[in-house]
Every structure is written in structure tokens, then in C-alpha cells.
Design a protein around this nucleic acid. Sequence first.
DNA 1: TCTTCGCGGTATGGC
DNA 2: ACCGCGAAGA
Length: 762
Amino acid sequence: MLGDVFQEGHPETPAQPPAAGPGAPTEPGADRVERLLAGLNGPQREAVEHGEGPLLVLAGAGSGKTRVLTHRIAYLLATGAARPGEILAITFTNKAAAEMRERVGQLVGRSVRAMWVTTFHSACARMLRVDAERLGYSKSFTIYDQADSLRMLKRCLGELGVDPKRFPPRAVQAKISGAKNQLIDSDSYNESAFGEFEETVAEAFPLYEKRMREANAMDFDDLLVRTVNVVELFEDVRERWRRTFRHVLVDEYQDTNHAQYRLLQLLAGEHKNLMVVGDDSQSIYGFRHADVRNILDFEKDFDDVEIVKLEQNYRSTQTILSAANAVIERNREGLKKELWSEGDEGAPVQLNELTDEHEEARWVAGEIERLEQEESVSRSEVAVFYRTNAMSRVLEDTLQRFDVSYQVIGGTKFYERAEVKDAIAYLSLLANPADLVSFGRVVNSPRRGIGNTTQGRIASHVNTTGMPVWEVIERVEEVPGLSGAAIKAVSRFYETMAGLRERAEAEGPVATLLEAVLHESGYLDALAAERTVEAEGRGENLETLIGGAAEFDVEREREREGESEVSPLEEYLQQISLYTEQDGLASESELVTLMTLHNAKGLEYDTVFVVGCEEGAFPHMRALEEGGEEEERRLCYVGITRARKRLYMTWARERRLFGRAERNLPSRFVDELPHELTERHSAAARSLGTSWSNSVASEVTPAQSVDPGPALELQTGDDVVHASFGDGVVTAVEPGGVVVVRFSGDGSERKLMADYAPIRKR
DNA sequence: TCTTCGCGGTATGGC
DNA sequence: ACCGCGAAGA
């Protein structure tokens, strides 16, 4: 669904797997049920066949949990226990939702269309489109992402005269978000606020809520909290959704927070048809207030819970599983589970020490090339995981230089680019005339001579009168203190927008509207006038955006034959505001996949590299400070268990952070791996000539043969390739790792740091 | 009002 | 190493 906007076409799913056949609907139920159960192991079958009432499936990594969920849904349909429209299946990420939808579709065909298979946030947004008016929002409320919400909060803090140096807006935002996820409102927060900082938060909290409501906007937390509010406050709403969702299924239950838990209780507390699937060992979202206790206490929270444990792993080699088990065993908290497999022993875990992040990246790139050439490993079956997004940059640079094409999941997202946010903000303002943050974003972009002063006066007029910003600019002459020039500029802006608004209200295709917006606002003209490569790139991004909108239009036409309660524009905005780039770029193409460990959950690859395994980086220092060692270890467990056949863990002795070189020890998690499962290599020891570690098996460094290796090895006469200067030849090697290279392109001779310059041997 | 420059904070993770 | 913001200049 969401994900489809940018996914390759629509693989118009033939939707009928061999099992169900075209005759499925008329096939006797018993047969269909038998086919659904065939191929499931004992515990899996038990979970699928579960009758009414709460069910907890403790599913170890790779134990076929999605299979159980999808088959359970199909089973409910096949046995007549539920109709498609009565199913609510919740996951945490859009990617997981898209996959689940696809796989359910393969089992049950087009009836998947009537089901709600989505994320918590999407489900809530959808429910709120129906009922938000009960809480004083209009249906067309805007969803603010973290950046938008921060802008709003900064505005509020400014209004209160809070010094941002003493009370960083981000910290205030985190506090408010934390409170909301605990379902603590601003009044109760105020009562328990302690100390200067919390008292400041207690002051900002209600104002922020007020301004958000005036802007008819919700942040991500609001989506959950407001849904809980509306379901809790209004009996008819509660009854409606309870009747609608007679079966609720939740994936990754270990990652639910209190608000989500409460919502599930409200929706499923009565009929109790709640199936939750999860693995406490993979609980890695404490930072966004997920509470492992939810899964640990599920048995106590509901009566007559059936528990099924899935421990047989169908994914990884025994070596990888043993490594995972060894790591997770160190945690004190958690339910005992032991993964086992009928599969092969497999290759040992490869541990590699490198001198710095550049060498690490080169090593990974070289090893990917070697695997491809010597073991015919497809690049699409290779993934590189890192702890923080910042680590992707060096990897990206290096892979590019090695001509290894890759895709990055997450990270700087398409929808977070300035030009894309601008375009969306125009649309948001058209859909929601009170959207002050979007107004602030677009009113002077492109430049219209409406600067900070004018904007500030408009904003405070909005605050004092409580009128939507749209109405304020419609009657801009009433805003106190504005110069004649400012009034004129704002009026012109208003006229343009009013024309666009009429088009929006005609409810035509979103793509057409978006194009009109970009043209008539002068946005494209301003871009064109820049005449820079960057501006060109931004133009291309906007074209991509329009293309995506066009796909949305087609999809909407086809999927929902006009039975939607909201306008196409509103629906589009909702979709993309919850969309994060999972890059449908397709797994068929030969791309190596890069992502954070958090993003990796739920995925699997033949070959996995976990880079940056250093104390301080992973486990991350900030996480350790917050007492999150166990969560970091679970994150490591998640990373390890993604690998089917080959697992590499690498670390760099030195890594640049904020431009400063930091020396680090290998991650404690590396040391927690039993020696008999690993093979340890060190390129660092060799190139530096010294080693801090005796455990380095220096005779086992076969990977070096294809690694372009530490550039220190360059000799006069070597042919090299530089990322930007192209081909060249080494004319001299100087002490301190400096090489002199003459480039054939322009004949220039340059001194380069062999270790850091983007060069490699030919 | 807009643009440029320089400083300082930043980069744990995501819906 | 990069981005955003404020101050100062145009």
C-alpha cells in the first residue's frame, strides 16, 4: 500500500498460489484449510489453528513468524471465523506491512484489499480521519513529522521566552514525546514536574498542544494518543471499531509502547481475539518508549492466554545461530529461548580488524567483489549494517569508487529533502488552511519579499485571533504593523494560493494539482533561474515526486472505487507523511543493501556485514549511558540473526567523529562470540607493523589478496584510479603515507595521503 | 529584506 | 565533516 507509491510498478499479483488455485472460493473449506496447514511445523500449526481468545506467539528470529501470521489470517478466512473486513493486522514499519499484505494476498487473493494490514500509525491516522472532529480537529488535519513538530515547538518556546541554550528544544521535544507515549497529558505532567527543566517543559507542553490544535496538526505521538482518546471517550466510536475489528493481530509486539498497548486493550479487550507475535530478544525500540514488559506481561494482562514458542530456525547456519545464542545469553532479562536448526554448520563468523573507517569500507567493498567473483554471490544478497546513519557516508563513497552499486534504506529520506518538503507544504496548506508550519515554509519560498518580520507579525496575529492562517492572509490588511509592500506581497501570494485551492477542491488528480502548484507558485521558475547542477537535481526530485503522485492517482482509482470519505489530496498527504523511504528499488537488481541495524529487523540476507563494531559506536556510548547495554546486545542479536550463510563483523581501530580521530577497542559483543565459531583477521596489524592484540591470526588474511589494501603498499610506477582525477601513476612515495601521483587526465601531479585519498590500485 | 560569512552544535535508533 | 543559525553587510 503506502510503499507502493515508489515501488516498481504493481506486480499485479496473480494472487493465486498453487495451493489456492483459481477455484479457491468454491473449493470445500476443509481442503483449503488442509492446504494452509501443510508444510507448517508443530508449533506453527498450533498457532495458526488457535481458536478464539488471546494468543501469544514467542517467535525466535527466523522461525517463520510472518508465515504464521499470514497463514493465521488465511485460516480465519478459510474457516469462516472472520470476514476480510474484520481483520486488523498491525506491524511497525511500512515495509513490513507491505510485505505482509503481499504475502497474505498470495494466500487469499483480492480479499486482502478489505483488510487493514498497516502500521500502528497509519491505522490510527485512518481511524482519526473518521473521528477527529470529536476531538476538535477537522478531518483534514496535517501530520507533522519530527522536524515540523520541532519548528512548532521552537515557536512556542520563543513565545514563552525560553532560552534555547539552557533548554534545548530537542530535549523538550523528547520529554513531551515521552510523556505522551505514557498517555500523560500536560496537566498531569505539570503536577509531577520536578526541577527547572521539567518545569519549563510543563510550561511549553500545554502551549504546544494548543498551537498544534490551532494549526489542525498532529505529530506522530498524537496519532496514537488521540486515537486512544477518542476510543476511550466515546462509547459509540469504541463499539464501532470493536465490531469492525473482530480479529486483531500484532507483529513485533515487543516493540509496543504504552499508548499502543492501551489501544490494543481498548480494541480487543472485549472479544479478546488478539494474537500478538514477538520476540523479547529483539526489543530494540526502547528509545521510542517501547516497553518490553508488554510482551513479558501479556500472559498476566489477559486471561486464558495460549502461548506458543517457535524456536526452530529456518534461516541461518548453526554457526550463526550459536553465535546469536551466545550473545543474547549474556542478558539477564528475557525469556529463555534457544534457536536451533536442522541446517548445516556453515562457515565461521569472520572478524576483521581494520585501521580506520576508510580501510574498513575498502575491505568490505573488496570482499564483496571477491565473493562475487569467486563464490558467485549476488550483490542483491549482500547487506551491510551499521549502528548509526552517519557511518553510511564512507561506505557509500567507497562502494561508488569500487563500482559496486548499492541502495541505502532509511537515512536521508526522499521526503525530507528541502524541495520535496516545500512541495508537500504547499499541498498541506491547500488541504489544511490552518497549517501554520507549512505556511511558514512556503510563504517565502521562492522569495516573495515576505521575510521574518512580516511572517512574525502574521503568526502572532494568528495566535491572538485564533483564526486559521489562511483567513488571516485573506484579510492581511488587518494584521497590525505591516508595511504597504508587505501587504501587497502577501496579497499576491494569497491570490495565487486561492486559485490553487479552487483546483484542489475540484478533487482532481493529485499529480495535476502538484504540477500546477509548482508552476503557479513560481517554484520551478526560481529553480530554473539558479542554473546550477544542484538545482537541476532538485528539479529531478520534484519530477520524481510528481511521478509518485501520478502513481498514487492511478492506484486510488483502481483500488478504492470512490468509496473514500476523504479527498484524494488528503489521502495522498496522509500516505506520504507516514511514508519512509524503503526504497522499493527491488531486490532483483544487483544492489548491495546498506542500512542501520534498526532498519534490518525483519529482513534476511545470505551475506551480512556488521561494520563499526567498536566500543562506543556499538554498543553506542549514549545508549550505554542510558543504561541500555542489554538493548544494544539485543540489537547485535538482531544483526547476527539476519544472516543466512555468511556473517562478517568488522571494526576500525580509529574512526573520525566530528572530524576528530577516536581510538576505539573492539566491541564487547565481538568478544562474546565463542572462539570456536569465529575466524579473526587483522589488516591493521600488518599495515601498521605493530599489533596490540596477540589473538590476531595473521597467517589467516586471505581476503587481503583482492583487497586493494592499505594504500601504503603503493610503489612508484603503480597505476592508480582516483575518484575525481581519474587514472594516474605513482611517481613517488614519501614518508608519512604520502604518495605523489601524476594524472593522465590533466597531466597534473598531486600529493595525496595514500590512506585517505579516494584512490585504488588498478 | 536578502545574502554572506563564521561559529557552534551535531550524529543512537524511526513512525 | 556538515548543517543551521545569527550577525553583519549589501
